[in-house]
Amino acid sequence: MKTKWYFFFLTTVAVSAILYAFPGFKADEPAEIGVLMIGENRLEKFTGLENGLKDLGYSNKEIHFTVKNARDDEELLDKQIEDLLQTAPDLIVTLGAIESQRLKAELDKKKITIPVVFAGLAAPKELGLIKDYKSPGGMFTGINNYHASISGKRLEMLTSLVPNIKKVHVIYDSKIDVSKISLKETRIAANALGVEIAPCDASSKECLDRLWKTGKEGEAILILPSFRIESLTEDIVKLTEEKKIPAMGLYDFEVEKGLLASYGSSFHSQGYQAARFVSLILQGNKPGELPVELPDGIRFVVNQQTKDALGIRYNEDLLKLAELVHPDAQGGRNP
């Protein structure tokens, strides 16, 4: 009888020990990361994110991405946000302001709490995504790409690069909050610098049409942040080439497409920098406690070919800061 009790006890202990030991064999599941992008042109941010995480020591074993690309369709973006939330990822990375705003609206609506890292957007505080840069609170944190605040600096950079500019057409998007905030910054800087600016709302087709009609030498174009404006880059490039007016964009890819210069954080670096936030959150930090960061680097990119095409002269001092596209183009730097 005692032996039976012994075996009953032993079997219970053995089964418990095996069950206890089982988790020892269980491999850690990779963290599920959802990625939201409004369009293809922000893919570079995702690439930056991947590279950043890789450099921080992450591999596919630790993380898994679910990428949602809305192909510049806002309605599709909303749907994809719904789909993504249904998968209940551990963390969501938004690649721009519009994605972040729509996601926040959906999260607030459904009262879902998922950490969100915005991989570069302008004026997150002004957009209501965070309470404070140092202590964002809530579930959002990420990179303030400074593209709103830096708008005035960009105006200064443009006018410094091409000192002969008399008037600057500022293309903004009245339907995009960031764009409007940027315009406000630009106006302040213009006053400080004594530069005449002419805002142009890209949300209406009239903007570019008017520039086509009125644009002339001695004028320049300053592009403010908006995914809609980003999609108009090629049209703007054509305009600047045709009208021989220099234009200042935000991103290096815009310069590569033919704009004279750009001053801003690159998509890749924003994505790369966002990887740090992803890592910090995966390591247990609350997004609300992670201070929003400015971009690690602001790239000043100048297209020498465009400069030659425009036939303009510019401030050589500034070129010390610039990264040149087609640096060996005929004409090169000012003689």
Partner: peptide, 8 residues
């Protein structure tokens, strides 16, 4: 932990 299971 695994060893304990094996020992048991």
């Amino acid at each position: 932990q695994s060893g304990i299971g094996a020992v048991a």
